[in-house]
């Protein structure tokens, strides 16, 4: 399953809740303010890094660039574009949005 998270992890617990409830092997895509969850050296970074053993983590490139953090993200987070977003949505049987 593909999970998308579009809220800042510093303002809402959408990302933590997603990480806690997603099944191992899921794809997790950070979009909009959700991309702040990929920030290197933040107070969320350890939790996200731990989760990377269980899930494949993606972040939407255009949203990273808009926020000026494209070069500040945790190693191993896969950056994708809009076409990659569409591919992920097609590859997975279901999409769940963590709002």
């Amino acid at each position: 399953m593909l999970h998308t998270v579009n809220k800042s992890p510093f303002e809402k617990n959408s990302l933590s809740s997603c990480l806690a409830h997603a099944k191992e092997g899921s794809a997790i895509l950070l979009i909009e303010d959700g991309v702040y969850g990929a920030l290197k050296g933040s107070k969320m970074a350890a939790e996200v890094q731990d989760a990377m053993g269980k899930f494949t983590l993606y972040a939407l490139g255009p949203d990273l660039k808009a926020r000026g953090i494209a070069d500040k993200i945790i190693d191993g987070v896969k950056v994708i574009d809009y076409a990659g977003f569409v591919d992920l949505a097609c590859e997975n049987d279901k999409v769940q949005s963590w709002l």
């Binding site: 800042s8 510093f10 303002e11 303010d33 702040y36 490139g61 255009p62 949203d63 660039k65 808009a66 926020r67 000026g68 953090i69 494209a70 070069d71 574009d81």
Partner: peptide
């Protein structure tokens, strides 16, 4: 809080088609 993100340098909004 997240307000500090407002003044992060290097924001490029062309691909999201929003005002920078």
């Amino acid at each position: 809080d997240d307000g500090v993100f407002e003044i992060v340098k290097g924001q490029v909004t062309t691909e999201v088609e929003m005002k920078n």
